[in-house]
Design a protein around this nucleic acid. Sequence first.
DNA 1: GTGGTCTAGACCACG
DNA 2: GTGGTCTAGACCACC
Lengths: 125, 125, 125, 125
Amino acid sequence: MENEFQSSKPIYLQIADRVYYRLIRSELSPGDKLPSVREMAVQMKVNPNTIQRTYSEMERLEIVETRRGQGTFIAERSDLKAELKDRLTKDVFKRFIQEMAELGLSPEEMIDGIKQYAEEANDES
Amino acid sequence: MENEFQSSKPIYLQIADRVYYRLIRSELSPGDKLPSVREMAVQMKVNPNTIQRTYSEMERLEIVETRRGQGTFIAERSDLKAELKDRLTKDVFKRFIQEMAELGLSPEEMIDGIKQYAEEANDES
Amino acid sequence: MENEFQSSKPIYLQIADRVYYRLIRSELSPGDKLPSVREMAVQMKVNPNTIQRTYSEMERLEIVETRRGQGTFIAERSDLKAELKDRLTKDVFKRFIQEMAELGLSPEEMIDGIKQYAEEANDES
Amino acid sequence: MENEFQSSKPIYLQIADRVYYRLIRSELSPGDKLPSVREMAVQMKVNPNTIQRTYSEMERLEIVETRRGQGTFIAERSDLKAELKDRLTKDVFKRFIQEMAELGLSPEEMIDGIKQYAEEANDES
DNA sequence: GTGGTCTAGACCACG
DNA sequence: GTGGTCTAGACCACC
């Protein structure tokens, strides 16, 4: 009865993120068909309108294209995966570095912190 | 007539963030009096209720304490600054590492990326 | 046109108290949907913002959780009712005993007083 | 620099309570002179206006009387102490029993609870 | 439809 | 003058 989405980030964007990650991890590839809006809604335990938004957003970013009567497909561009990964990692890096700078941490301290926290994450897993 | 706040994050939290950063940069210290709700509202070009919410939130987190009829003050705990910095940096690290892991980057790649982007930031400045 | 709230305790907390009591009396159970902010506001003859505050407070205490676009629900924790009752009774006991101690009454006198007043209450009913 | 008042109860009433308790414990007696407003303010680390309110409140309740040019004195009524104690204990009992009834506790459970919590309080002391 | 946020303006208790 | 509460009404993102 419950879905698993949290944080303040809109659910429809969280779902888009999942698609991006599956692409980058090569669990999805250009040309693959995505589940229908309704089916995805059932899988995600979410309102179909929410999936509709997800798909619209991804189409806007040209990550996905819809073919009338056939469904929604990962865009057929050879560089899609690399481009997507680039864009996402770049965003994450920039935000991270900027926030850390505001907190007064030097690049060296950032690197130390990553070593430390990455270890902790390993311990937990 | 216009204020300078952006985006999705609520204004009242953005203002709280500013207080946190001023604390960490030692522009504010435990015991210091914050501007009154009304005065801060003028400074920030925001409705007094918005500031009220900022102050309530910070009080909930025990970063600030209000003395009735006197105003709102930075909490008088010697470890406040360190604790706050810790909490904020921890949050940023965790989010960064988790997002990067989802993008399939290893800690080594994260570190390389930081070196690279930190250089770029230097070049710009 | 008039609502029925009194005294010094903020209305938004008085309304929260009512929810707590309904939970303890099992008129509400984990997972139940509370009325929407607007509907509750009508019922209580109060401004929607006041209810909003009530719900925020209850969410802060993890007694309630909100699902975006769906409404506000009693938290789904099996021990919620017992925990809540415990917390509330504990608070009342502690305050009572402390006040009585300050008035110089021994536990025995407290017990005698309860017997006496409980009888009176019976007589009235 | 800090005073020691807490809870949501107004400071001026908390200070009045202290006077009541000192009376009941016979640390104060009818006819005794209270400290001047200013002196009490210094003792309590509080604004003189706050003490002024305390004294006004106590005068309204006829627990205290002010003699112009001389100061403020505990009212000279032989029954003052007993009456005060009665009134305060009655209030505390009634509120306690009512709150407990709302929580669904029987008088027997109240008595059990008092025994239990009174013990705990002993352990701590 | 839902809750979340923000503005505007008011009143009050408190110090 | 201070913060705390409440009302009224608006807009928005999300489902």
